[in-house]
Write a protein that binds this DNA or RNA. Sequence first.
DNA 1: CTCTATAATTGTATTAATTACAAAAATATA
DNA 2: TATATTTTTGTAATTAATACAATTATAGAG
Lengths: 145, 145
Amino acid sequence: MTEDRVEILKNELVKKDIRPSYHRIKVLEYLHAHENHPTADEIYAELHSQIPTLSKTTVYNTLNSFVEAGLARAISIDGVERRFDITVIDHGHFRCDRCGAIINFSIDLNALAVHGLEGFQVTGKNVYFSGLCPSCNQLQIQEKE
Amino acid sequence: MTEDRVEILKNELVKKDIRPSYHRIKVLEYLHAHENHPTADEIYAELHSQIPTLSKTTVYNTLNSFVEAGLARAISIDGVERRFDITVIDHGHFRCDRCGAIINFSIDLNALAVHGLEGFQVTGKNVYFSGLCPSCNQLQIQEKE
DNA sequence: CTCTATAATTGTATTAATTACAAAAATATA
DNA sequence: TATATTTTTGTAATTAATACAATTATAGAG
């Protein structure tokens, strides 16, 4: 990790009024490097192997502060699993019901016509689709034969 | 509850290959009567007071079978709470970050342009917004003064 | 109507994710 | 350097959900 990279990450935290401690930088770095929507436990497992003193509570505290600050999102397709990702605009999440993979897709949220939210202040938008990914779809068809 | 109502509920279950037991009819009835997205625990608490022998496991089993059959949806804005609602097409869920209220709004999902899901079989679509409902928005403004 | 097989329900025990909280360590400030 | 504040740790507690074996209810055969 170069100095520059660390500086950029620090800056990202400071801009959101989060003090750039070592652990927080590490969690943020992990989220940037792993856009495959890790669970809190996956983040802990990986970072704990690098930083043996890291506690799970810190990971949870850090993730919660990130979500509160809008740095990250907590996503859950059906309420069964809670996963995190770096906030990136205009993408939805697809979850395959068979293999569990979570895949980003791009959407144009501005084109979404909404009725019934007059007077509401909308700050967060999440779109979750589910079904079968191409390979699982193939398997499903083969099984039926 | 009139005979007619029970017949309609029974039919709804049978059509989805779910045997219309007394408890299942009661859970389905509850979901129809309470479109405010109850948790499994809320459903249990209310029905348990009517049916003292009802167990929580049955409520969970029933809800899971409903979701699997497409009769109900499990929703979760941020992975913290799991809530259920009767499947109604073309509506999204708004969750107020301040008071926690969950409000339906209508959307035209067909108008949503999606890229990156070619070859996928999409069977479920959920749209979650969050922010402040009108009354909490007012309170927030007043506090800042 | 009775017997039997199957399905549904119960209740307890277990698992797993998350939070609470107080003590310890690290960091910033005077 | 001393002190106050923040961060982190580690354990305990909480909570939602599931597993599973025992019990009860139901449907169909005879």
